[in-house]
Amino acid sequence: MSVTVADAESAGPGSSRTRSARRAADPPPRQKPAGRRRTAELLSARSRRDFPIFLLLVLPNVLLIAAFTYRPLLTNIYYSTLNWTLGSPTASKVGLGNYREFFTDPESLQVLWTTAIFTVATVGGAMILGLGLATVLNRPLRGRTFARATIFAPFVLSGVGIGLVWVFIFDPVTGLLGAIIRGFGGTSPQWFNDPKLALTMVIIVYIWKNTGYCAVIYLAAMQAVPADLVEAAAIDGAGRVRTFFSVVLPLLSPTTFFLLLTSILNSLQAFDLIRIMTPLGNGTTTLMYDAYLQAFGGYNRAGYSAAVATILFGILLVMTVVQLTLLERKVHYS
């Protein structure tokens, strides 16, 4: 039986007749091959049937993430609206007062500036040195395996242990570096008391600790660079430097992107070395360390600390989104 449009319009809304009429009036959908259509139907039915099982399987992970990531995140945002002494059973609501204080306090500008310097210096330093070391280690040298292990070792060592050792090295009075400088008739710089030198000192140690990580990741990527491309560049008359910058480096861009992303996140959250080497944060108070100092470093201002942590979270989020949306376009995936 054929159904006309007029018939469909004369039928009441919602009637089965109307729906069939509309289906008949629509242009015919592109026909899938019978086999594919059957598979899609099966998959769809199966998906529907398996959905609860899917939920059941992912639920433990979802709950864990909700309990240990999203819940603390939301709780922290809530705490940032309180004037609250850590450990106190009571607090008063201050709304955005903690944020206002942060953005109007001149010391906050210094904290943001220190965070920027620390992040740029440590990420840039570790990646450039790591790339250089990877380039050297990628060549057939004697003792290469030993050198790789040595360079990578600081990355896996405890930050606290490393911090304590470097404190001894840098101590101007009783430290190793001071003794060497005095041996040459000089005077040791005041690494711990001068805020600029304190930041320099922590940056040096942080780069030393993380260069090995960048080097190993770059090395793995370099070994995956197709040899025929390098050979082709050589045949075309490109020297080593030209080959490196025009062939190898572009091919390493996915690795560079990955390292940039992870290193920036790590540097913004650096804590152990700063805490051990400069407990007062004299010149080395980054956003992360400020959050710690405000809650635990003597001030006991848990609400303000939560606001600082939330601001840090916002910065991390924005930077990650920007990197994923803008920088990734520059990446060459082979």
Partner: peptide, 21 residues
């Protein structure tokens, strides 16, 4: 079971401990 799990998650999310205001 799915709804029960989601409900537990919601409770966990809502159960923000902390100071009394």
């Amino acid at each position: 079971l799915s709804f029960a799990g989601l409900g537990a998650g919601s409770i966990a999310l809502a159960a923000c401990g902390g100071p009394s205001t």
